[in-house]
Amino acid sequence: MDAMKTQARDGNAIPMETTPVDPTSLESAPLDPAPAEERRKVIGVAGLAKRFGTLAALEDVTFDVFSGEFIAIMGPSGSGKTTLLNILSLLDTPTDGSYRLDGIETATLTEREQVVIRREKIGLVFQQFHLIPYLTAVENLMLAQYYHSVADRAEALEALDRIGLADRADHLPSQLSGGEQQRVCIARALINDPALILADEPTGNLDAANEELVMGLFETLKAQGHTVILVTHNPDLGNRTDHIVRLQHGRLVR
């Protein structure tokens, strides 16, 4: 993807991988058969459960994700994908189990600490883009910078330049196409250099050309060393990731 010109997080170029995943390797084990000790564990989920009253949305979910991995979470509607993503993004808390993000046990965090961790370690990409409609593309990025630390227009413009939207910096979201809005959303997710990028059906509202553009962007991010988790219904997209976490009725399936 020529639009992505950033250096890899560790400074080295990482070859792009789109290896299909053997789902049998997922449960209660590192997702990548490669030696885990060589890479940092970004996510460690163990025995995770989420119940809404008597309804179990997630039950005994266990998996690890290491830095530089590109993971897909797949499953039918109601399988618990969004609930898992909300917990991973600290927008929700599990009923049971442990979730360690970048070495931090999140179960004991206060709401305020969760906000801090979210803005420093997580980049979110949404199906509906969710840009602030009255802020321009560059201002949307600056808002994320502002909540993180200090807004820096020059850096935000560079980020837009890297996704090929430098000339759209001062356009409002309503003046951008769906694909452009999603690219701004991805740039916003990346602007604070998070440890983890969580994308919820990021191509769900895009046409085929933009879907390819966005997936290419994620593959480039993975190649640069970013850790990306993608929630999708689309098996073709899932097959382009390193591994697939497959959910059914709230449980990981082999």
């Binding site: 993004s89 927008l91 906000v115 979210r118 803005r119 420093e120 994320a144 909540y147 993180h148």
Partner: peptide, 9 residues
């Protein structure tokens, strides 16, 4: 969204 991207209450 603002809360999701890091705005505190």
């Amino acid at each position: 969204l603002q809360k999701a991207i890091g705005a505190s209450n």
